[in-house]
Structure formats: C-alpha cells, structure tokens
Amino acid sequence: METLEQIKSRIEAAVPGARLEVIPNDSPAKQASLLVDPTCALDVARFLRDDPQLQLDYASNVTGVDWLDTAVKEKVKVKKVVDGAEKEVEETVEKKRPGYLEAVYHLYSIALKHGPVVLRQRTENRTDKTHLASLTPVYRGAEFQEREAYDLYGLIFDGHPDLRRILMWDGFKDFPMRKDYVEPDDYEYEPTPHDDVLEKATRHYAPEVKI
C-alpha cells in the first residue's frame, strides 16, 4: 500500500477543495493518520472507497476522542539582552491549545487486503460547535458506531439517518465519556472505599474503619 503522503497528494488532486494534514505517530506502532476537514470528509471517503488502487471498502472502527484544553510547552528562540549583548536565547513558552472533540476512522480494504488508513475529523471546540460530517452514506457500518460517539461524547454527525442515543437511555442528559463528566451523587454503602470513592463516602456517612 502507498504511504500516507502519497495518498494525501492523490486525494488533493482528485477531490477539489480538500484540506488535509498528516498527523504523525511516534510510538513503535507507527500508524500515522490523516486529518480531514468536515466539509469535504464525505467526498474524501467516497474517493477512498472507489479508487481502484486503494479500494478501502471496509470501515473497521469509528470512535470519538475527547481532548481537553491543555497547555503545550514550546521552545522558542527569542532575542534578548543578556549581559549587555544581544543574543538569541531559547525560552520555553506555554501556549494554550483549546480543547476539541475528534472522530477517528480506521479503514481497511477487503478487496485488496491492505490497510489501515486512519482518518480524523475534529470539531472546533467542545461546547457548541460540535458538528461533523457523517460517513454513514458511504460506509453503512459506521451507523451504530457514530451513534455511540454521539451518545457518549456529544458529537453531532450531520447526514446520519438516525442519530439518537444507543447505549444510554433516551432521557439521559450529559455525555458520559467526556473527561469532565461529573457523576450524579447517588451513593450506596461500600465497605472498602478508596480515593475518590472514599471522598464521596465521607460526604454521606462517617468512615467505618477507625485508624
């Protein structure tokens, strides 16, 4: 199979207006991924499925990921006056990276038996702009998995035929898999509480085991 850079250049040639970026992966697994803009995601997916060299006709895994607001440390060369002379000094600058939600797709090919090609779609922020393009019209197998990403993360897929909760019950509020999810305070007695369970326990009754 071709490398990700080659695939990226062919997609840019075939799908006009596509905006892509390769995200590297430094672990021993070496599965780099392709970031796709939600406006062109459906066309890119159709190209990947129908292209005779790739024929990625099987969407193996569709999942959501939650990235919180973090600060990223970067080393920047800054001109500073040190001991009377102007020098270039390396300083670590903390940049705020805003949080976002992400949908990751792993595509394989059953016809040509190669893969995987990893696609990612990112939202702009975690609060109100959480719409992404649904790839269900191209890959039917993404139907239940995109529903699960909506149910657990709050990613809204435009173009999905039937977007509703799949694992939680229909009246459930909130999105359980997000990193800032707070559980409801419905505590039951537990004989051996630890860590955060212990904090919850002490709010409801005095600790059992006396030291």
Binding site: T127, T130, Y150, G154, I156, D162, F175, D180, V182
Partner: peptide, 11 residues
C-alpha cells in the same frame, strides 16, 4: 460541570 451542546436533531 460538563459542557452543554445544542439540542440534537429531531428523530
């Protein structure tokens, strides 16, 4: 608290 999103599309 957790983030709120706009209401989902109607069924």
């Amino acid at each position: 608290m957790s983030a709120t999103t706009e209401s989902p599309p109607s069924r």
